[in-house]
Nucleic acid binder design. Sequence first.
DNA 1: GGGCTGTACTG
DNA 2: CAGTAC
DNA 3: GCCC
Length: 672
Amino acid sequence: MSEHTASSPTNDEVDSSPDFLSCPPIFVLPTHLSLESLHEIEEDLVKRNARLTYDISEARLILGKIGQEKRAALELRSRGVWTEPISKYEPPTKRRRVEAQEPVKSARQDDIIDLSTETEDEEDGMRSRHGPSRHLNRPKPPSASASTPHPSIASSDQSDVISVVKLDWLNQCLQAQELLSIEPYLVYLARQIPSPAKPQPNQPTKTTTKSADILQRAKQDAVLQPPPPPPTHNHHSRTHTTHQPPPLPQTTTSEHDEVVSPHSPPPWVKNNIIYACLRSTPLHPPNEDFINQLLKIRHIRELTLDEIGVRAYSTSIAAIAAYPHEIRRSSEILSLPGCDTKIANLFHEYQHSANHTLATANELDISPSLQTLHTFTNIWGVGTKTARDFHYNHNWTTLDDIIEHGWPTLSRVQQIGLKYYDEFLQGIPRPETSHIAAIVTKHANRVRPDAGTPIQCAIVGGYRRGKPLCGDVDLILTHRDEHITKNLVVDVVASLESEGWITHTLVLHLMHSQRDQQTLPYRASDDSTAPGKNFDTLDKALVVWQDPHFDDSDHHHHHSHADTDSEEEKTRQKRKRNPNIHHRVDIIVSPWRTVGCAVLGWTGDKTFERDLRRYVKKTHGWKFDSSGVRERTTGGQVVDLEAGGETWEERERLVMQGLGLGWRDPEERCTR
DNA sequence: GGGCTGTACTG
DNA sequence: CAGTAC
DNA sequence: GCCC
């Protein structure tokens, strides 16, 4: 039917040929496609009766902007579809029966392992030798056998044979206005196999989105949506200052697409507030599931040394985390500062994927090398560089490998980090955190008996943001008298060490801003508390904490000599291992003068802190850090914003107001 | 096309 | 200086 | 990857 219409290229029929109805269910890989082109392609297909599906597991024909067999296998696998390559010329029906009956068998097992090994290769892009199978003949030019569709396109519908085909096939079909053989465009011909390890969350196959269905949605959306842009100019114009509706041609909505009115954008969206420190960001935002996917991608960026990627994802994540509605359309994403088509695309994928995951994010769980790197960077003192060195230069893949082959080469803190690997990864419950804070405070006051008023302790970090479990304990000790806080860290640590609370000191920071204050002229200060004191010492100790008390009850040990008992008791307790868990504790000491800055700087979440510094730089030309605010010019004059604050909470508030942030509760700084 | 937080310790 | 941590 |  396609041929006869070819003569009149301007009428409507041309537009809807060829007809893809005879093709098996089609899935379009979003990889390397903008949201716009993806939608365009999907629309093209739907218009021509294609059986488009958003559930890749039911697709038999997969179109994608990819050219390599290996890549194709990876794309499928990261979407939960495990495959093995088959020869193009092997009759696909034969093996299927065998497959269905045999569970997971010997020869196949090998294939699976091979496949997972490959992911590794894919990651670093370094070793790229063996593909899933040998390449067969390279595609011949489309003209050769083009006129009749490959029989397998139509018939393989039911089977477990999957064809991954270059997107170009579609373009050529549209141009020729007839179905062309997929064979010259075939990237990967595969058979679906059961996934090896994890039980694939077998989706109830719900989403065979019929063409009519989609068309309806598209129309519905077209009505709902503000006027779509003329199809000619495809670059989206983000005029943020005048908050125009997102100009994305929207073709699909969520599963239950009742007629929904668009969310009214929160003020920070309307005003295009790009700094996370100016927004309220709760610990559990409405789009947390999607954010968790993005966090995984960000983590992959970390592990692969893509710092800028990390930055970009952090920005996007922070914006989405601040968004107070459950997102229904990818166009909503486009309206958020720090989010553009990349993230909107990912949301589209997230929304339409059967399991609500992202292929890229899944690689973190699938890829052996990423998992190894992940394991290694979780060692305190081992960052991304060292982790990669361990893995790629030493070929270590487990912690035991490091211990066995590299122990003497490790730095002291890395050895400690390795020794308490599991314990440091345990979250610390809030009651335990406050208990630790109380003990530290007690010791602080014990080593400053003449302080007059007690030394105060602020629990900051994740605890202050409201997390039920914290990765470490962050404490700020302060006192109005600068003589009291001077050298306080050292004395507190020593005291805690002597009582057994601190087992190791990972690092001591004794940050003397002596030189800063030396070089700069004294500010005619209204309240210079201690004119003689030239340094503000914001000192900190990063330590390993363990409760020294434990139950060593050994009930059948009965002493015959009462007088030696206590002595015996002690030595025996020393010999017996303390089973209490080790924790990471940061003890920071701040002079009163800048305690507001310290508290603000340490309550954080990383993106909040970064954006805070960027904002302060941009708007005031100041330099913020947890030991104060300075001018960037003129040798760094101190800017005192917290003078007169009577409590550390009040001083933090003064700093925030002075910086132009207004007030934001700590629980609203969870930018991730 | 340039910028992306800012700082100190360790080895 | 590179690497790490906060 | 996104903003200015």
